[in-house]
Design a protein around this nucleic acid. Structure first.
Length: 1053
RNA sequence: GGGCGAUUAGCUCAGUCGGUUAGAGCGCAUCUCUGAUAAGGAUGAGGUCCCUGGUUCGAAUCCAGGAUCGCCCA
């Protein structure tokens, strides 16, 4: 390591963010940093994280980056806090999306074609297809700095994973929690499977359906018909009954020689042109009446029954019942002895039972059936009805509600327990607990877990072909034992192999075959807490693995993974399996539209990473808005975030630049103790302690926005105040340059500590930038230090908090801000020195500022600061009540209090307040004491001064520019001009020069008067002033300063 | 149709316990600094805090109703 740059690595001339990140990535790879960061905490208290497995058969999008960044930051934070955070990736492998993709690849469609193709080969293709984009996912995961162990990632298709799921299902079966039932389910004829409610949820679309009013002639009253309304004409052939509400009044309407029965309330709605109501009867009177069904193909009772679900919100108040095609219909039908005939086959097509539409897809039969009704005079009217109707979330076909046998998990048995567990979960945002998720749990219904598909975890149930006895098999070993097979290490538990294995029925000895269904993929992902480690086969305890401290997914998982995790954990272990959830909002495009492939508005993550870098991307996602609200995303927004980080980077570059100079500085030397450092140093270190507290608390609360803002605010203070006021102290290294004070070491040490601490706090947010800074600032100088910021401990406060000093500095910053404003108002450049600033403020504020008055002088470029304790000299003081403190005390009397306060003598009150004395006011005829804290003093300016003002403080400037001040100002102009020239000449900041100046008489007078200062500021070892040009130099220029011509020449010394 | 959430500057978003002058960044305008330069700073313009009503001494904030958007569910 060379000594002339104090061990500092040279910075790149041009900073390339993306290249920097790739270098850091390479160091992580080479140094195995992630693995070491986990390993070094072995034995410590675990912080458990679960990766909700994505499916890798599509490309990752921006929303995946969002969730992966949130999945990353908290494990990083807790690892730095000392916890053992093993992070294991996972991939969701099964399911219909994979099958559909393979169908597309093969150019086939539907179950018959799949079976003709062959299940074995089909599933083999699924196995390949599901990981098609695995490499891209892994590449993105690494590139965005999401630290998760992808080498050990669990896959839900692994035999070990499947076996754990079998164990779970068999355990539930043994406890009577799995059952088969003929229920109406949302069914996709195209995909040939029932859909779970969370799948249905994904497919609602607004569609136009026919809305038909049909006559159901009453058997006992010729010429009188029930008027029945439905939006699903295809269910009319299956009609078995009509439901009425007993307590509703029904009207008989006479019309064109016929009589129609419908709910009285709806007469005007159905007949907007008016109708002749000839009779009224309660719904109860209609019960038991029989009628002619709309179609004669299917026999049935065709009777009116009572039901409470009937409403008079729309339709006719007479509800057509086809028990096979509606949950309400099924229940009501069962209660009244109706059958549930189903003339729709498993492909969603009509069977020969309905000859006119045999072979047609159910919904496609609507128009033919309507025509048939019309021809037979049974149709009163047909309209178009726009409503939201569920469609298959993958293939887009409308779903049918359809009665068929399905396997269920009895989640309703643990509904109350799930609610109880939910109450203890830390939801972010909190409202999810009692809102979306709680409501969902309250309305819990049994979970339909079977799918009549191919690529999934086979349901481990064997049914006897003789006596229908069902046996659940909870492990491969058990299966082998029951089937009399030899153990097979290569055993693939998927279809079709597992279908070929039979076992003898335990009841009757006949052959039992596996039931054909596979398991809902959500059951797979919900099983990951125990299945990822092959519990209970490979391990016998979940200690340290359950529950998770933290999981994070988008809000659409409330009824997906968040639910399946909770349901399975509660059913199996009677406990929850996650303590804290961060529930992310949706990412919308720049126009507020949801990103979707079909809209073509998906932003490709790589386009952001390759142009902006991963850290700016992360910083944006973590700190630009509340993560749970939907947000609009655009590359420009990320660019703004990047600029915020650049301020920190510039501050870092500043330190490294000056520390690397020949007379620079390096950490680890003999720096002054903090107590002995200048006030500005102690101030920023006090602020730093506050930052550490704040960021720690915010991250413990899963609040990245609050933590990020705190960092932002600190970086701004560090760069735009601390560095600004301390700049000259960095010239000349540890000893300090002549005239710049001898505390350069303190300045370097202070800035260094700030940057190292900020880098450490930033590590979970922006792991690349943080590590690059840390490596340069710490690791490169200290061979004993960890070689990555991700291996160090989270910062703690160092006892530097100094509230008094912070208050003083706040007052100084106020005064400087006001002074600058005053300068701007009077058009006096800061370069022009002025004799005096007059600060009018309460004595307490003056006392705060006094120790830092030199800062005020420097920043405002004034020779002196004078405090005026009687503010009347500069400003008029007004006294206002502090509503926050007085409001609760006086309540309704506040207007009177405000009036009384306004009537006080401002100057006298101000003195009293400053002296800490209570003031007496008369309110409603009684005297009350109000404390100083109950009053707010406000200043407003009087005429005649350049004044800036804020609450309680005003700053005026003496605007008179005397001849000496004029010369001083010109000298500063000259320095300014030379500095610009140095830059134009391309000189290094520390390079010494010879300087030759020529100019007007006044300028030469100014140069003479401030010769040493000019030479020192411009690093001129020689300064000549004369007409003519004594040397050619590397640069020469001529200009006019404040009306005075100047010529300058520069050469290297 | 129901539940949940959102609506604040031209744009993207904060806003704690209800407190009287509602903030930030970007953009725009004017100015400025520069021994951090692919930077920095100051100031300004810009607001019906979606609407209506209510509670309160006081409402962006709490309540009710409505509008629009989104998500979830029927």
């Amino acid at each position: 390591m060379s000594t002339d740059n104090h061990g500092w690595q040279p910075l790149d001339a041009a900073f390339d963010w993306v290249a920097m990140e790739e270098r850091v990535l390479e160091r992580w790879r080479a140094g195995d940093v992630f693995a070491r960061s986990v390993r070094q905490r072995e034995g410590a208290e675990p912080y458990v994280f679960y990766e909700g497995p994505p499916t890798a058969n599509g490309r990752p999008g921006v929303h995946h980056v969002l969730s992966r960044v949130f999945k990353d930051i908290f494990p990083r934070f807790w690892a730095m806090r000392g916890r053992y955070v093993d992070r294991r990736g996972g991939w969701d492998c099964h399911g219909l999306p994979v099958e559909l993709e393979v169908e597309r690849q093969l150019g086939i469609s539907g179950k018959p074609e799949i079976e003709a193709f062959g299940i074995a080969e089909f599933n083999a293709r699924c196995r390949e297809s599901v990981l098609e984009y695995l490499e891209e996912w892994e590449r993105l995961t690494e590139r965005i700095g999401f630290w998760v162990d992808t080498d050990r990632a669990y896959k839900t298709m692994d035999a070990t994973f499947v076996e754990s799921v079998w164990w779970a299902l068999a355990t539930m079966w043994d406890r009577g929690l799995v059952f088969e039932s003929d229920k109406v389910v949302p069914y996709c004829g195209r995909c040939g499977t029932a859909l779970s409610s969370h799948e249905v949820a994904q497919g609602y679309k607004d569609v136009d359906d026919p809305s038909v009013y049909v006559r159901f002639p009453l058997t006992a009253e010729p010429g009188t018909s029930l008027l029945v309304w439905t939006t699903t004409p295809w269910t009319l052939p299956s009609n078995q009954g009509v439901a009425v509400r007993p307590d509703v009044t029904y009207a008989v309407v006479a019309r064109d020689g016929e009589r129609l029965v419908l709910a009285e309330e709806l007469v005007a709605h159905v007949f907007p042109d008016g109708a002749d109501v000839v009779e009224r009867r309660p719904g109860a009177d209609l019960v038991g009446a029989t009628y002619e069904p709309p179609f004669g193909f299917i026999p049935g009772k065709h009777v009116v029954i009572p039901a409470d679900f009937v409403t008079t919100a729309d339709g006719t108040g007479l509800v057509h019942l086809a028990p096979a095609f509606g949950e309400d219909d099924m229940e009501a039908g069962r209660a009244h002895g109706l059958d549930s005939p189903n003339p729709i086959d498993r492909q969603g097509r009509f069977t020969a039972q309905v000859p006119t539409v045999t072979g047609l897809f159910a919904k496609d039969a609507d128009s033919i059936l309507i025509d048939d009704l019309r021809e037979r005079g049974r149709l009163l009217r047909v309209e178009t009805y726009t409503h939201s109707y569920p469609h298959c979330w993958r293939c887009g076909r409308p779903l049918l509600y359809y009665a068929k046998p399905s396997w269920y998990v009895r989640t309703t048995a643990v509904r109350d327990r799930m609610l109880e567990i939910n109450a203890g979960i830390g939801w972010n945002p909190e409202g999810i607990r009692d809102g979306r998720f709680g409501k969902w749990l309250e309305g819990n219904v049994d979970w339909a877990i079977s799918r009549e598909r191919y690529w999934g975890t086979p349901l481990p149930l064997w049914r006897c072909e003789g006596c229908d006895h069902v046996e659940a098999v909870g492990s491969f070993a058990r299966l082998n034992e029951r089937a009399g097979r030899a153990a097979d290490t290569e055993f693939d538990p998927h279809r079709p192999y597992v279908d070929d294995i039979t076992i003898p029925c335990a009841q009757c000895g006949a052959t039992a075959h596996r039931v054909p269904e596979v398991v809902d993929v959500w059951f797979d992902s919900g099983a990951m807490p125990f299945a990822q480690d092959h519990y209970p086969f490979a391990i016998d305890s979940l200690e340290g693995l359950v529950p998770a401290d933290f999981i994070c997914e988008a809000i659409d998982q409330t009824r997906g993974w968040f639910y399946s995790l909770l349901a399975e954990s509660t059913l199996l272990f009677d406990q929850g399996c996650y303590r804290n959830v961060v529930c992310l909002g949706l990412i919308l495009d720049g126009d507020g539209q949801k990103m979707s492939k079909s809209r073509g508005n998906v932003v490709e993550p790589w386009s952001v990473i390759d142009t902006q870098g991963a850290d700016p991307f992360r910083w944006y996602l973590l700190t630009a808005q509340s993560p749970w609200d939907a947000s609009r995303f655009s590359v420009d927004a990320v660019n703004d975030s990047r600029r915020a980080l650049l301020t920190l980077w510039n501050t870092y570059v500043f330190l490294v630049t000056y520390a690397s100079l020949p007379d620079g500085w390096a950490p680890g030397g003999d720096d002054p103790a903090v107590a002995g450092r200048p006030a500005s140093d102690r101030w920023i270190l006090s602020r730093l302690d506050g930052l550490v507290d704040r960021v720690t608390a915010r991250l413990e609360d899963y609040d990245t926005l609050g933590a990020g803002r705190a960092i932002d605010a600190f970086v701004d203070e560090l760069s735009n105040w601390y560095v600004r006021v301390s700049r000259s102290r960095f010239w000349g290294g540890r000893q300090g340059e002549a005239g710049a004070g001898a505390d350069g070491g303190a300045a370097f040490a202070t800035l260094h500590e700030c940057l190292v601490t900020v880098a450490t706090l930033l590590a979970p947010f922006c792991p690349f930038l943080a590590d690059e800074m840390y490596r340069t600032l710490v690791a490169a100088h200290d061979p004993d230090a960890p070689d990555s910021v991700h291996l160090v401990d989270w910062p703690t406060t160092r006892g530097h908090a100094d509230p008094e000093l912070e208050r003083s500095m706040a007052a100084v910053r106020t005064v400087v801000g006001l002074g600058r404003f005053a300068r701007a108002e009077s058009k006096l450049k800061v370069r022009q020195p002025l004799a005096e600033a007059v600060v009018a403020c309460p004595p307490a504020v003056a006392r705060d500022i006094a120790p830092l008055v030199g800062l005020v002088e420097d920043e405002l470029n004034v020779h002196a600061v004078r405090f005026v304790t009687d503010p009347g000299e500069l400003v008029e003081v007004t006294v206002k009540p502090n509503y926050r403190t007085l409001g609760p005390r006086f309540g309704k009397s506040m207007p009177a209090v405000a009036a009384a306060v306004a009537a006080l003598d401002p100057a006298a009150t101000a003195r009293a307040v400053d002296g800490g004395e209570a003031v007496t006011i008369a309110v409603d005829g009684a005297d009350h004491h109000v404390e100083p804290a109950d009053l707010l003093l406000t200043a407003s300016s009087t005429e005649g001064y350049a004044v800036g003002q804020d609450a309680g403080v005003a700053v005026g400037l003496a605007t008179d520019i005397t001849p000496p001040l004029r010369l001083e100002g010109l000298a500063r102009e000259v320095v300014h001009a030379v500095q610009n020239a140095r830059r134009d000449a391309g000189l290094r900041v520390e390079e010494r020069i010879r300087l030759h100046l020529d100019g007007s008489g006044l300028l030469r007078e100014a140069i003479d008067a401030h010769r040493d200062a000019i030479a020192a500021d411009t690093l001129a070892t020689a300064l000549t002033v004369a007409h003519g040009a004594p040397f050619a130099g590397v640069h020469h220029d001529e200009m006019v300063l404040d009306g005075e011509p100047l010529a300058l020449r520069i050469d290297r010394a």
